[in-house]
Each structure stands twice: as C-alpha cells, then as structure tokens.
C-alpha cells in the first residue's frame, strides 16, 4: 500500500513538473517576443527593452527556467501589466468564488446524475432511457455559454425567479471574509439572509457548470448499472424476492461507485476550466472571469497564473481519486 501511495505521489509530482515546463514554454518560447508581451500591449521600444532586462529575458533559457521555478515555488506569479497588482494576491482573492461554484456544481452533478443513471438502466431501451440518452449527450453538446444565456433569459429575466448575474446584489454588504467562501462565511457569521441570497445567485451558474459533469456521471452509471444488473449475484437476489429498487440501490450502486469516483476526478479539472465560459456569462468574480478579461487585454501573467491553478487542481483531484481507489479496491494496491 505504501509503495502504491508513493508511486501515485511521484506521478503527481511529475505532472506538476510537466505543467511548469509547459507554462514556461508558452510564456517564453511561443510568443515572438516575450518581452513585448511582458511590457504590455502599448509599450514603446525602450519600455520593451526595460522589461527584457527587468524580467531577465535577456538571459539564456535554462537560467530563466530555474528562475521561473524558484519564483513559482515561492508563490510568485508576477505582476499584471494592466493593473499592476500582484497576480498571486489576485488569484487568492478570486479562487474561493470559483471553488465555491465548482463544489456546488459537483454536488449537483453527483446527486442528480447518479439517480438518473440508475433510472435509465432500470428502463433500458425504454422511452425513459432514450430521453436520458439525448439529455446526457446534450450535456456534452450544449455550449455552456449559450445555455447560461438562455437560463438567464428564461428564469432570471422572463420568470424573475432568480437573479441574473453577479455574486450578491449591489446593495448587500458581503460578510467579512474568513474563508473567502461566501456561503460558508455567511454561515459562520450567522447571517442566514446573506446565505440564502448568495445561494440564489449561485444556482444558475452552478447548474450550467454541472451539466457536462452530470451527463458523464449519468452515462457511466447507466452502463455500469446495466452491467451489474446482469451479474449472477443480482439474478440470485432477484430470485430471493429482493425488490428491484433495493437491488439497484444496494447491490448495483456499490459497483458503480468506483467509476463514478474516476469521473469526478477527471471532471473536477475540466469543470474548473469551463468556469472561463460560465463566469463570463454570469459575471461571477472568479479565476475564470479573471483569466478571460486578462487574456483579452493581452495581460499575460494572470492567464498563466490561472492555468497553473487549474492544472494543480486537476492534478490534486486525480491524485486523491487514485489514492481513494487504492483504499476501495484492494486489487490495485499491488499494481
């Protein structure tokens, strides 16, 4: 077991190194002139030369790489050209909003995707199954930004049930930050009203964000469940008169848990990357919106910072899933 854990952590460290390599390559090799990029879109020639010296871009690449790694290790992501603020500080401010949204979306995906997958498997090849199949493929095919706009139009504007965009209304004073997670902070400070208000603002973006994840959980569970329902132990349980729902909920569900876990691990990173679209639509003040607004104005460091954060999240989620797998499936420990 220990060897398994060490191996997985080693792999994760390797991935982290790969991530550092790739962001370095994009930042320093891809653009025709990284100094011009670092100096900003409207820099003059002398400013560009100044930036070249300031950022050490006149040094040989290996030396720049070492410097880049040591900067990252100390949490230094550089400065935004547009605002002059430190990217690390900005990321720390925006990340909780994204985290909160992703957690809620992931919960939605699991809590809705699992039962729908079971339902679909129980009615295999029936009308319900066909409808859920189209629904599941739609989860991958629906452009999140368009889906978000439609929900805004329908539910927020026409029906008026939920607010259109933002994290809280302009007049509401947000709770003093403890964790930076608005819902949690509101609870900790005992401000129930703000908690409810924050939740209403989160429902639509979380729904849009959760849809692709929900769809893949649904599909995986359906096929696992179909498989399990044909297994001998299910047949014998049925012969003993166990009710279909109990068979599904107890026997088959256990088998579907591992693949679902794998999907969650993969989807966590992808979900975080699609916040660039969802946060843009809903004006959600997270790292996705930060990346997009920086990328459009040619402000490069924030984009690399967000890439780093999303990559690290992706890596950690995969590592955790691998480790959980090892705990839940003893066959893997020796692998």
């Amino acid at each position: 077991m220990l060897i398994y854990v060490i191996r997985r952590i080693g792999l994760a460290a390797l991935m982290l190194f790969g991530l550092v390599c790739i962001t370095f390559t994009i930042a320093n090799v891809a653009p025709s002139d990284p100094a011009a990029l670092a100096a900003g879109p409207d820099a003059s020639r002398s400013q560009i030369e100044q930036a070249r010296r300031d950022y050490g871009l006149d040094k040989p690449l290996p030396e720049q790489f070492l410097r880049y790694v040591s900067d990252l290790a100390q949490g230094r992501f550089g400065r935004s050209v547009a605002t002059g603020r430190d990217v690390g500080t900005d990321l720390a401010r925006y990340f909780p909003a994204t985290l909160e949204l992703c957690v809620l979306a992931m919960l939605t995906g699991v809590l809705v995707g699992l039962p729908l997958g079971m339902l679909s498997a129980l009615h295999k090849d029936g009308p319900i199954d066909h409808v859920t199949r189209i629904f599941a493929v739609s989860g991958i095919a629906l452009p999140p930004f368009w889906f978000g706009l439609l929900l805004q139009l329908l539910i927020a504007t026409w029906l008026g049930w939920l607010p259109t965009s933002g994290r809280l209304s302009v007049v509401t004073e947000p709770p003093d930050p403890i964790t930076g997670l608005l819902l949690l902070d509101a609870l900790l400070r005992g401000q129930g009203g703000i908690f409810v208000e924050g939740l209403t603002y989160m429902i639509l973006p979380a729904l849009v964000l959760s849809f692709p994840c929900l769809a893949s959980i649904l599909r995986v569970n359906r096929s696992e469940m179909v498989e399990a329902l044909r297994a001998d132990y299910v047949v014998s349980a049925r012969a003993h008169g166990v009710t279909p729902w109990r068979i599904v909920a107890v026997h088959a569900l256990k088998n579907a848990m591992l693949p679902t876990l794998a999907i969650i691990g993969l989807r966590w990173g992808w979900m975080m990357s699609s916040t660039v679209l969802v946060e843009t639509v809903f004006d959600w003040p997270g790292i996705g919106l930060y990346a997009v607004s920086s990328a459009i104005s040619g402000d490069f460091k924030p984009v690399m910072g967000v890439t780093m954060i999303v990559g690290v999240n992706f890596m950690i989620a995969n590592l955790l899933v691998d480790l959980l797998y090892g705990v839940l499936d003893p066959r893997l420990r020796s692998a």
Partner: peptide, 15 residues
C-alpha cells in the same frame, strides 16, 4: 496535465 480549454486560452493569449 492541464485541461484543454484553459491551456488553449493561455496559448492564444501568447500568440
């Protein structure tokens, strides 16, 4: 090691 969309945005931001 990083989800595609974010990486693509980083590359477009550079290019």
């Amino acid at each position: 090691s990083v989800p595609g969309l974010v990486l693509a945005i980083a590359i477009v931001a550079a290019l």
